[in-house]
Simulated scan of single mutants.
Amino acid sequence: MNIYDVSEKAGVSIATVSRVINGNSKVSEKTKQKVLRVMEELGYTPNVFARGLGLNTMKTIGIMCADSSDPFLANAVYYLERELRKNGYDSFLCCTGYELKNKQNYLKLLLSKRIDALVIVGSYFLEANTKDNTYIMEAADEVPIMLMNGNLNKPNIYCTLCDDHQAVYDATSLLLNQGKKDILFLYTSKSYSSIQKLNGFKAALMDKLHTLKEENIHICPATIEGTRDLLLHLSMNGLKFNAVIAAEDILGVGAIKYAKLKGLSIPEDLSIIGYNNSLLATCCEPELTSVDNHVETLSITTVNTLMRVLNNQKAPNKTTISNDLVERYTTNF
């Protein structure tokens, strides 16, 4: 059954059926009830796309994330969908992976679904080459873009992010003030967020020690075993370090595994700080000190900003949220 069948059986125009579906007040109550009765008799359920055509809104938001198995991204998607439902919006989720071409294709797919806006979760979508971000900026000509944990300065792009630079600067400073001067910084990619964290680490070292050892900065696999093995390799090749700052909790847990294998005392011989304050931080032994980037607050703020945009209200183009260090047993400040 379709809208044409309803129109024919009810003896009204297709436009009248459409007005009834979309709640248009110009239809008389008598006609409305007749159309609704026919819809019920025929078992006709209005297509959300057809309804969207009448209302000029699909009440649907697109969400893109790189990898739903990532704890931070998975939590962000959960909170985003929860908040969107509270505001009467459905969502389409696309997990794009990390290849630029796939990101571009998925964005085109979501736009073809006539979404009302797009939420891009995570800084993996911001490429080092500005030209590679053109597809996001062009999409902003069609729908509002909410960029969560990243920053692009262009009209109709609204950014919500944590102050990763300051968080790592403060964490590094705490370790330096304890006399931990041989600090490793571990990260997994050159995403926008990772670069902010790296720059915070470098700034603290330059401010406190006036020197920087590039051999203490390493990109490593985003796995516990990969991090453990990298640290074993560095140690076997003579690199001395008494603290680790990890850009993600999974790397911090890998550092704990390394310390266990080496028989090191935590935090006396090796202090470790992770990032994201995820479930991983409390599932290891000892529990991991970690920077809490408040993913729930980030998500709620993103949706609140989006609702203001969709309601034609004034909204900030950039909102920055501060982080907190949650101390557990891998440090002793």
Rank of each mutant, 00 (worst) to 15 (best):
E29D: 15
V12K: 05
K30H: 11
T31K: 14
V27Y: 09
E40Y: 08
E40M: 10
A10F: 03
Q33I: 13
K34S: 11
Q33F: 07
G23Q: 01
K9I: 15
V20H: 00
K32L: 08
S25F: 07
L36W: 12
L36H: 05
N22L: 00
M39R: 09
R37L: 14
V12W: 10
A10P: 02
E29A: 14
I14P: 03
S28I: 12
I21P: 01
E40I: 01
N24I: 04
G23V: 00
V27I: 15
T31D: 08
G11V: 06
I14F: 03
E29M: 15
V38Q: 10
T16L: 06
S25Y: 08
V17C: 12
Q33K: 15
R37W: 09
V17M: 12
V20S: 01
T16N: 03
N24T: 01
K9P: 03
R37K: 14
K32T: 08
S18R: 10
T31Q: 00
S18K: 04
N24F: 00
V38I: 15
S25I: 09
S18C: 04
V38G: 05
G11T: 08
E40G: 02
K34H: 02
S28W: 09
G11Y: 08
A15R: 10
S25G: 04
S25R: 03
N24K: 07
A15Y: 05
V27R: 08
I21V: 07
K32Q: 14
N22R: 00
M39G: 05
I14K: 10
S13Q: 09
I21Y: 03
K34V: 14
E40K: 05
T31W: 12
V12P: 09
G11H: 07
A15I: 14
V20L: 00
T16G: 06
V35N: 02
K26Y: 10
V38S: 10
K30C: 12
A15P: 08
N24Y: 03
T31Y: 07
R19N: 09
R37T: 13
V27Q: 05
M39D: 04
V12H: 02
V20C: 04
Q33P: 02
K9W: 06
G11Q: 06
K34W: 00
S13H: 05
A10V: 02
V27D: 06
K30W: 04
S28Y: 09
Q33A: 11
L36V: 11
S28F: 11
L36G: 05
K9Q: 12
G11R: 11
Q33T: 07
S13T: 15
Q33S: 06
V38W: 05
V17A: 03
V12S: 12
T31R: 11
V12A: 06
V12R: 00
I14A: 09
N24V: 04
S18N: 04
L36C: 02
I21D: 03
A15V: 13
M39K: 01
S25T: 09
V27S: 12
V38P: 07
L36K: 08
I14R: 11
S28G: 14
N24C: 00
V20R: 00
I14E: 06
I14Q: 07
M39H: 10
V12N: 07
R37M: 11
T16E: 04
R37G: 14
